[in-house]
C-alpha cells in the first residue's frame, strides 16, 4: 500500500479521527508531491472542503481532502493548514473534479489555488463581495442583485 510509503517519505504523523478514517496533516509545500503519490492507490477524490478556525489557530484555514481507494477499499483524509492570503497548490491536473471542488472552496472561503486553470466563483454570482463561509462574514448579510420591492425583507 502506498500509505506506509508516503508516511515514511513525508514523515507524516497519522492521526485517527473519530470516524476511523486515517488523517494526515501535511505542510502546504508537500501537498502536490504527496497527493501525486497517493493517487497511485487512491483513485477517487471524494471531496475538497475547508474549515475556518478564525481566532482559534495560528493559521486560519484548514483545507481538507478526502480520498477513496477502490482497490484498497479504504479512505484517507489529508489536511493542510493555510494562513490568510496564502496560496496552495491545485490538484486539478491529478483529478479533474478538483477543478470544480477548488472553485467551490475559493468561492466560499477565498482560498486561492496556485496554478488553477479557471479560478472563479462557481455557486455565487460574480458581483458577490466577500466569501460567505468565512467566520467573519455576517450570516444574514445578503447581497441582492435587483432592487427589491421591500428592501427591509432582503
Amino acid at each position: 500500500m502506498v500509505l506506509e510509503e508516503v508516511e515514511r517519505e513525508f514523515s507524516l504523523g497519522k492521526k485517527d479521527a473519530a470516524d476511523g478514517i486515517p488523517t494526515y496533516y501535511c505542510p502546504g509545500e508537500n501537498l502536490f508531491p504527496l497527493m501525486e503519490k497517493l493517487k497511485k492507490d487512491f483513485e477517487v477524490l471524494l471531496d475538497i472542503t475547508a474549515v475556518d478556525y478564525l481566532g482559534k489557530k495560528e493559521k486560519r484555514f484548514e483545507v481538507v481532502y478526502h480520498l477513496l481507494s477502490l482497490s484498497g477499499k479504504m479512505r484517507v483524509r489529508v489536511k493542510v493548514e493555510v494562513g490568510e492570503g496564502e496560496k496552495i497548490a491545485t490538484l486539478s491536473s491529478l483529478w479533474k473534479n478538483a477543478n470544480w471542488l477548488e472553485r467551490e472552496v475559493y468561492d466560499m472561503f477565498g482560498i486561492e489555488f496556485e496554478g488553477h486553470p479557471d479560478l472563479r466563483r462557481i455557486l455565487l454570482y460574480p458581483e458577490f463581495e466577500g466569501h460567505p463561509l468565512r467566520k467573519d462574514y455576517p450570516l444574514k448579510k445578503s447581497q441582492p442583485r435587483i432592487k427589491l420591492l421591500r428592501p427591509e425583507r432582503k
Binding site: L139, S142, Q143, P144, I146, L148, R153
Partner: peptide
C-alpha cells in the same frame, strides 16, 4: 441566511 430571499413578495 445571506443566500435566500426572505419571502418572494420582496421581488
Amino acid at each position: 441566511n445571506y443566500a435566500t430571499v426572505q419571502g418572494i413578495d420582496a421581488i
